[in-house]
Simulated scan of single mutants.
Amino acid sequence: MSGLTLRRGALALALLLVPVGGHGDASAFDSEIMDSVVSVLPVWPGHPQGGTPELPPGVAPEASAVAIAPEGYLATAYHAVANAESIDVRLADGRLRPAELVGVDSDSDIALLKIDTDLPVPMLADVLEMDMDLGDPVCAVGNAFGLGLSVTCGVVSALRRTSTGFNAIEDFIQTDAAINPGMSGGALVDDEGRLAGLVSAIFASDADTNAGVNFAVSAKLLRRVSMDLQQHGEVLRGNSGLRVRDPSREEQVLAAGAVVSRVTEESPAARAGLREGDLIVEIAGRPIASAADVNTAVHLHRPQESFYITFRRGEVRETVTLTLQ
């Protein structure tokens, strides 16, 4: 996890098993969610499994993964397995099993693993499709510091985060639920036990402590990427023919959005009627405040899919339909 200095000594981690979605006891949370998350143990070149020469065994680069689809498919963070020569996963009962790397998408920091279908790793039952609200309760489940699975809880601090600098394509849920190294690829779940996101990144303080500014890839982007990785081994992305930039300070005084800087001739953007200088303010119902927001909103759609773009041209507000090539 970028920006975090690791320290092993005097680690105290509370294991919070809280009732979720009205189950009424911790065992329901454990059986329905904890069993869908596994620990990931990559073998990095020149390093022993489960640690590095600088860090004791049990510390990073261990990670986590979530059962995202039937037949043994697990989603994890790409950065956790990027340089792995081989990958094992540790099941809830402690058994180790090899995992196959099906495909990766470095732009969104998502990788897809596959294990034997006869292993008891149930798919997380429900994936959250709608947007959450600020302040909604969430819990993060992952292999913190390689100690095994644990749960921390907090709230949704922000939605649709982009421009954090972690990934080329970002659609983050920000949370104050404590997230530490080893939880990369873990699950962020809502109060009904639905998968809200995949733990991806954190901001950390200089004191090596969790700063409460943590990020999970949204379930929407996770599903978009993982489905392509499962079906094609790579992510299929369409061409819009649209280039945008952040507005200047003077432009932002008038309105927030992303300014069209170029439209390729005969492209989907040109056929939709967009022009250089248009200010994009909304895509498929998502508010747009920066060029990064446009990048994310477009990449949430597959080739041949259509979506609405709302923009301002001078004082006129218009909405057009764009179909990706």
Rank of each mutant, 00 (worst) to 15 (best):
T5G: 06
T5E: 12
L6F: 14
R7P: 04
A10F: 13
A14N: 10
L15D: 12
A28Q: 10
F29L: 15
S36H: 06
V40W: 13
L41R: 03
G51E: 08
E54G: 01
A63Q: 03
A65C: 04
A67S: 09
A67E: 05
A80R: 00
V81Y: 08
A82P: 04
N83R: 11
L91M: 04
L91I: 04
A92R: 15
L96G: 01
E100K: 13
L101S: 05
V102W: 03
V104A: 10
S108D: 03
I110R: 01
L112A: 02
I115R: 01
T117Y: 10
D118I: 02
V121A: 04
L128C: 07
D136L: 03
P137G: 03
V141L: 14
A144P: 11
L147A: 07
G148V: 08
V151A: 12
V156Y: 09
T162N: 09
T162F: 12
T162P: 05
A168N: 13
E170A: 04
G182E: 11
S184N: 01
L188A: 00
E192Y: 15
L198T: 00
V199S: 11
A211Y: 05
S218R: 02
L222I: 00
R224S: 05
G233P: 12
E234W: 11
N239V: 06
E250T: 10
E251I: 09
S261I: 08
R262S: 11
E265A: 14
L274N: 01
G277P: 08
I288R: 01
A291H: 09
V294N: 06
I309F: 04
G314K: 03
V316M: 10
T323V: 07
